[in-house]
Design a binder for these strands. Sequence first.
DNA 1: TTGTAGGCGTTATCAA
DNA 2: TTGATAACGCCTACAA
Lengths: 327, 327
Amino acid sequence: MSTIRDVAKQASVSVATVSRVINQSGYVHIKTKERVEKVIKQLNYQPNDVARSLYKGRSKMVALLVPDIMNPFFPQLARAVEDVASKYGYTFVLCNTDDEKEKELAYLNALRQKSVDGMIIVSSKLSQEDVSDITTPMIALDRKISIDIDLVTVNNQDGAQQAVRFLMQKGCQRIGHICGPENASSSKARLKGYLDVVKNEPWFSSGYIRSGKYGFEAAFEATKKMLTEHPDIDGLFAANDLMAVGALKAAEQLGYRVPDDLSIIGFDGIGIGKATKPAITTMAQPIYEIGATAAEMLITRIQDTTIPITEKELRVKLIERGSTRVS
Amino acid sequence: MSTIRDVAKQASVSVATVSRVINQSGYVHIKTKERVEKVIKQLNYQPNDVARSLYKGRSKMVALLVPDIMNPFFPQLARAVEDVASKYGYTFVLCNTDDEKEKELAYLNALRQKSVDGMIIVSSKLSQEDVSDITTPMIALDRKISIDIDLVTVNNQDGAQQAVRFLMQKGCQRIGHICGPENASSSKARLKGYLDVVKNEPWFSSGYIRSGKYGFEAAFEATKKMLTEHPDIDGLFAANDLMAVGALKAAEQLGYRVPDDLSIIGFDGIGIGKATKPAITTMAQPIYEIGATAAEMLITRIQDTTIPITEKELRVKLIERGSTRVS
DNA sequence: TTGTAGGCGTTATCAA
DNA sequence: TTGATAACGCCTACAA
């Protein structure tokens, strides 16, 4: 790996001049510029990003922290963030936190020490004080972290209401809810939306709610328990699609026919929902757009840290498929 | 962000002493050590990784380059690599290349400029000369890149043979193959395994092979065409599970009953294969183990670049599910 | 046991 | 239009 000094020597100029050529800054004679460029090509010189980062205090890297890389929602999101990041010349770093506060804090630290320029965070565990001393630009995604951090979400509560009402329209009389982790704001909003619709129903009790922690396995178990305890349930609203698939599998195992005996609706709109049979009816989020929006916001904030905190809410959309009964 | 100098000043020692305390190197009086540590805590000092990287020429980062982050195979792999990486104190970087040579080369460059310590690469497009000038430790995964790069794979050819023979045992008479991208060594090996078994069959012709490029959509289309042209096909070997799901959906759309009219077997053993109905019979790879193995190999090589090139082959295992007929 | 100082590769300031 | 040089923050000979 040759350095700027090697180039300078070869081209019989100072490092300052080479630097000017590289960065297209300041004046440099066309003749010398050509000479330097030739040497650069000859030596296949590439500026060392680490040295640059040290000097500038910036690294041209952005990170995305997600709780579960195995949930297809997040790869799709990651894809979007990466696209935008690389569009602006940023290197993209993906970090998986397992929804554990400790790992999240460890990453926050590691990334700061690496002078990462910005982060997009999906976290149920972090709170205001955990991030109050962090000056690196941050965007919260899907789940609110603190009032002074930008946020990108969807109309969760409203979407959940729509989902539950849809089940009712289709004739469901007893609707259960598999909710996400209790600390996640998205999960809380969806639960709220569910409650808005059903809490005054005569049949409703807290037994109609169980946590699936946004995961397949937990949802599978939760559904089995719920259906066993409340065999009268004929509709199920899962707070995400991964859990909806878990619920579907659980229902099948218990001998339910979906959607004849039980209608299931999910949330997210991930690809796997189309692979099951029946395919999962869902409140689809514009996942790619969410990621791209967050990434754009992040880069805007990196470029100007003084802009006011904003919250952006995108909209979900019902996609009807086979897991809900027809009328 | 306080620096080592701030700590030194506060503790009335030199930066060298602080450095010694941080790195537990050289001699330092227990008394001064305590004092320094107190100040470090007070100031909440954290060493700047960028400066360290610059000095050492290493960054404590490893990268994983994958062709398609949306294929669940790769998140699972990423998960494994990340676990091992962080076990050894490395930060993990995930890069998505879309199986495009240009993006791969761009990443290779960007990562080198960032002094990334090592990379694990899944690539169909890179060849010996593309990487010959790279000194950063590298491991090829799933697909061979060059003879002088470590490789981690599975017994693809053998596994493919097993898969096809399994279909025959189950009574399939005409077996088609949806293959992966033509340049990927894993894809080539699986195709070879398929051919080993069927090439001397009287019915066989090249029309029984179509490329699905390891992707859902392409496999969906390929399957529809193949089944339309060869309605006699009663068995299908897809070179990965994502394509097997695509094939399943295509077959359904054409009115085939799986597995009664058509048996389908995949390759990989990703979770989604369990979500479909019928669930996908597959040659399962030990995905996590593959990723962990590659990561361990990478770190070994980072620590000692002189060790000889090795190729490690893990073994696939048949998992029978509903997409193949019973007898 | 501790401190001084040079260097890692860049960039930017200030003279020339 | 160009060049010397001081940072950026850290580590490690080498001296003391």
